[in-house]
């Protein structure tokens, strides 16, 4: 028999922790990508480029 309360508790705590870390990373690096996006559109650069991680 599945212990649903434990399943949902573990799911909730682990997901919230991962999301909190992800939110911080995406906030910081997303801001950098916005600058790049506006610069890229302004230059009329429509070519497929490299990933921001590269």
């Amino acid at each position: 028999m599945i212990d649903w309360i434990t399943v949902w508790t573990v799911l909730f705590v682990s997901s919230v922790t991962i999301f909190a870390i992800m939110a911080v990373v995406v906030t910081i690096r997303g801001a950098r990508d916005i600058k790049q996006l506006l610069r890229s559109i302004e230059k009329g650069d429509r070519e497929d480029g490299q990933d921001s991680e590269k």
């Binding site: 990508d33 996006l37 650069d45 990933d51 991680e53």
Partner: peptide, 12 residues
Amino acid sequence: AGRAVRTWLAVA
């Protein structure tokens, strides 16, 4: 958006 969106901004 000119197909110029990168990974982190795309995730956000």
